[in-house]
């Protein structure tokens, strides 16, 4: 326990990084998911094909493999592309960017499925009602589609978030100083990896429990309308 106490700030700092990574990844993957589901529902045949291929690719390649490929290969590719097109001189794909982009890329595919499923759950009458009220497309999206979409998609977004949070652990392999990285290196230095690894597990469980609370509150909020109606 004394070892853990000595390294408490490092663990806390790592937890902060894990959360930052997770939340940034979540926001980006939600954006990708919205775009992807729009492509799959309302896009032309080519957009649909691309969105479908994207999901298949993500389902086919392990996260760690994709992360390493992006971290090491992505940078070289970006720089070659920049030199070839002359658009940029140098783009840094650091461990954080590689981690976030990979996580967003992977979970964007899962979020696409979440939103697509949720969209089909919205009763058709809602859109017809919105049209008959004369709402524009963007008004309809903001006031009718989006709030209900979130309501129906929330449970599955919640599941994705829990998986996403755990996936951030892999970024430690790229050398990003997240919870797992600090925990493992502190365990090595103190020759007491067991205590630190268990501490990491406990911190993850706390984060999971907290997420659960937040999700439940959100779900209550977004499904309020539905509960009143019935």
């Amino acid at each position: 326990m004394a070892d853990l106490w000595e390294y408490r700030w490092l663990l806390l700092q790592g937890t902060g990084m894990t959360l930052l990574l997770g939340i940034t990844g979540l926001v980006l993957s939600l954006l990708i998911g919205l775009a992807g589901s729009a492509a799959r529902i309302g896009g032309g045949p080519i957009a649909r094909r691309i969105a479908g291929g994207y999901t298949t690719f993500v389902r086919s390649v392990p996260d760690l493999c994709m992360m390493l490929l992006l971290f090491f290969g992505g940078q070289t590719l970006m720089n070659k592309l920049g030199a070839w097109t002359g658009w940029w001189e140098y783009v840094e794909v650091n461990a954080f960017a590689a981690g976030v982009i990979t996580i967003a890329f992977i979970f964007g595919a899962y979020m696409t499925e979440s939103f697509r499923g949720a969209y089909t759950s919205i009763p058709k009458g809602q859109f017809e009602a919105a049209q008959s009220l004369g709402l524009t497309r963007s008004q309809m999206f903001r006031h009718v589609t989006f709030p209900q979409l979130m309501g129906y998609a929330l449970p599955s977004i919640g599941v994705n978030w829990m998986v996403l949070l755990k996936t951030t652990a892999l970024v430690s392999v790229l050398g990003l100083h997240d919870l797992v990285f600090f925990g493992v290196s502190a365990g090595r230095s103190t020759r007491n990896p067991f205590a630190f690894l268990i501490a990491i597990m406990v911190i993850y469980l706390i984060l999971t429990a907290l997420s659960d609370l937040v999700l439940r509150a959100l779900e209550r909020r977004y499904t309020k309308g539905r509960m009143l109606r019935t």
Binding site: K166, L170, S172, V173, V180, L197, Y204
Partner: peptide, 8 residues
């Protein structure tokens, strides 16, 4: 289910 398999 609540912790990363890497850590396990």
């Amino acid at each position: 289910r609540g912790t990363p398999m890497l850590v396990q």
